[in-house]
């Protein structure tokens, strides 16, 4: 396929969708805060850091911690999946392929968050 034929497959310009870049910036700002909190919690709250089972479970029983960690999971998953999407879209796929990939990424992203929340529930139930 020539470059001009490839260029002809380009979707109409002027997309009204919010640019993924803006979402990455906003989620990135949130992650700067949440990741810092996460690292402080993991390494500086308990003298030796949150390492062994008893310390981790005691920490996770705090509802505020649960809320923060789930929020962190949502934002980090969004940022990660959107980032991978941006990298893959640089391969120059067709518009149809990009729409399909976006749908797959939504499934993977939601699945990741669901898995994380279910895992948290399972951990607390097993403790």
């Amino acid at each position: 396929m020539t470059t001009q034929q490839e260029a002809a497959e380009r979707p109409a310009a002027g997309s009204r969708a919010i640019p993924a870049f803006v979402g990455q910036v906003l989620s990135g700002v949130v992650l700067l805060v949440l990741l810092t909190l996460h690292m402080i919690a993991q390494h500086f709250i308990v003298p030796t850091g949150l390492r062994y089972y008893e310390d981790v479970i005691a920490w996770l029983r705090n509802p505020v911690v649960i809320a923060v960690e789930v929020t962190f999971l949502v934002f980090v998953t969004y940022h990660a999946i959107t980032g991978v999407r941006a990298v893959l879209f640089d391969f120059g796929f067709s518009e149809r392929t990009e729409r399909r990939l976006t749908a797959v990424f939504w499934v993977v992203g939601i699945g990741t968050v669901v898995y994380g929340v279910a895992l948290l529930a399972a951990i607390l139930n097993a403790a």
């Binding site: 979707p11 310009a13 997309s15 640019p19 870049f21 879209f89």
Partner: peptide, 9 residues
């Protein structure tokens, strides 16, 4: 026109 995923973004 340029406010597009294949353009400026």
């Amino acid at each position: 026109l340029m406010d597009d995923e294949q353009a400026a973004w």
